[in-house]
């Protein structure tokens, strides 16, 4: 659905951020794009939306080069940037004027989402708090029913109940025709939501795996002393009173994925983890 081929990109007067980057985004998934600050997550999202132009290579959405910024492409993708602009008009007026650009916009769905998020429709957009604005724009983006929705740090500015509602809403509105690409450095906020997981570091995709494969081949353990006998440790992290371990899957042992541990593990011992997952 969205393909990045041999992408080269660099900001003026600096070295290349992306050098021959390839990524294939398929329909019906919630991609989690993780990385440290400055890894290039936001830049990659902007290139995928056609907001920045690649020096070389191409980004194609449903057969159309996104850098052409054709209406056909723009009406089928929606970006929620980390810092976003909402005009100083009423919610009703914004809905009336902006939703008309999106042929698949579902007003009933928008009403339900805004209700779920407890955002008052009576207010003007300027009167909303940052968190409420974020919830408004998340609801709007989902109601557009675009094929691909990009979200850059969507949980920033949301309170704890809203983060949980966000996860619930994204999970319940994901379907085989729609893809979410969520960039974040707050991995815990997106646990049990994202699949597959993409980790970006120094302008390169260093990890791209489905949750199914990760669950099948890795264990995430918390131990007070040493690793249980027979387990092969790929990464360990000392914590107060014990350790977190990332190990190869041992028969019969089930553990939920710890995204933060996996992220740290990939950054420090990528080769062994990737090799094990590819086997």
């Amino acid at each position: 659905m969205l393909t990045i081929k041999e992408l080269e990109f660099g900001y003026p007067k600096s070295t290349l951020l992306f050098n021959k980057l390839d990524l294939d985004i398929t329909k019906g998934h919630i991609y989690g794009l993780l990385g440290k600050n400055g890894a290039g997550k936001t830049t990659l999202l902007k290139i995928m939306c056609g907001l920045l132009f690649a020096k070389k290579g191409e980004v194609v959405l449903n057969g159309t080069d996104v850098s052409k910024r054709l209406p056909l492409t723009l009406q089928d993708m929606y970006l929620i940037p980390e810092e976003f602009y909402l005009p100083d008009i009423s919610i009703e007026e914004y809905l009336k004027t902006a939703s008309a650009f999106y042929p698949k916009f579902d007003h009933q769905q928008f009403d339900e989402l805004i209700k779920e998020f407890e955002v008052s429709r009576a207010k003007s957009l300027k009167a909303l708090s940052h968190g409420q604005k974020k919830k408004f724009i998340i609801s709007f983006s989902i109601a557009t029913n675009c094929s691909v929705v990009f979200m850059d740090e969507p949980t920033n500015g949301l309170d704890i109940p809203s983060k949980s509602k966000f996860r619930k809403i994204v999970a319940s509105t994901a379907n085989e025709d729609r893809t979410f690409i969520i960039s974040t450095h707050q991995v815990r906020d997106l646990e049990n939501l994202i699949d597959p997981l993409v980790i970006i570091e120094d302008g390169r995709i260093i990890f791209e795996e489905t949750i199914e494969n990760i669950s099948e081949k890795l264990n995430f353990l918390k131990v007070t002393e040493n690793a249980p006998a027979g387990t092969e440790v790929l990464y360990e992290e000392a914590i107060f009173g014990g350790k977190f371990l990332l190990t190869k899957k041992a028969n019969g042992v089930e553990s939920p994925i710890d995204f933060e541990l996996l992220f740290n593990a990939v950054l420090s011992n990528r080769n062994d983890i990737v090799k094990h997952l590819k086997n």
Binding site: L74, M77, L79, E83, F84, Y85, P87
Partner: peptide
């Protein structure tokens, strides 16, 4: 005139 407004303007589904 700002990145946030540019995002909004460029992403509005209309032609150049």
């Amino acid at each position: 005139n700002t990145s946030e407004k540019s995002n909004f303007q460029i992403m509005t589904p209309a032609s150049n």
